[in-house]
Nucleic acid binder design. Structure first.
Lengths: 120, 120
DNA sequence: TTCGTATATGACTATATCGCCGTATAGCAA
DNA sequence: TTGCTATACGGCGATATAGTCATATACGAA
């Protein structure tokens, strides 16, 4: 892997950091939270209602997103308002969505003509 | 979550697909494989030597990358040559690296002056 | 202070998967 | 065919974590 570092210029630590960031984005619940926050700040209770998930889980996943510095928060009385602090995540999701769309289209194009007409 | 779909236009299935793609990128070994392939096609044995990992593990991770359509392969006699089939992954990694760099710089700037001089 | 609400945290179970080992398969040579 | 090499595959142990419950903490009201 020393050989790899010479090639890529990235040491094992940097690779691990990148992997961890992708890991944070690799959970559907966390992605849904980010999507919900895309339209503006929301407090924990709003997210619990919007995603109909348990409060404890939402809070825990918000903690992960916050530790990764993808969201930030501010207290407002009893509530805590969360908001996106890293707009880059939308570019990331957009790139991935584009790839998934291309893959789906390629699958359709690869289908034999008769079934291509029937499916979906 | 029906509410969420109305807001974001993404249903639960699409979110799961995006999450899975991030999950594929969330393993250091797979990232290292992609980095190694950035300079051109390599066969399994080359990757085993470059990353000094076990052949079984490299092969398994290549299977995951191939299933996700991030790499493609072609047989060449006894060997199988793998190569990047989705250049988008470099944009993804670049965005993440930029974010990590900004975070690191912010941490340095937030350090009290005396220790800022000492650390790293 | 005490009470009620909003959020965070600790412990737990269930599930997933990384990396390893052993072995199976694919292809070439003889 | 047999033998050799490169790669893929199935099972296993160890580790990690999502989601849940119960509880703790933070804040405001009275």
């Amino acid at each position: 892997m020393e050989k790899l570092r010479q090639i890529t210029g990235l040491d094992a630590g940097a690779v691990a950091d990148v992997a961890h960031m992708f890991d944070v984005l690799a959970e559907p619940t966390r992605l849904q939270i980010l999507q919900a926050l895309a339209n503006g700040p929301l407090c924990v209770g709003d997210l619990v209602a919007t995603l109909d998930a348990k409060q404890a889980n939402i809070s825990k996943q918000l903690g992960v997103l916050h530790a990764a510095k993808l969201v930030d928060r501010e207290r407002d009385g009893l509530q805590v308002r969360y908001f996106i602090s890293e707009p880059m995540i939308f570019e990331l999701c957009s790139l991935v969505c584009g790839k998934l769309r291309r893959d789906a289209e390629a699958r359709v194009a690869a289908m034999p003509a008769p079934s291509r007409a029937r499916k979906r």
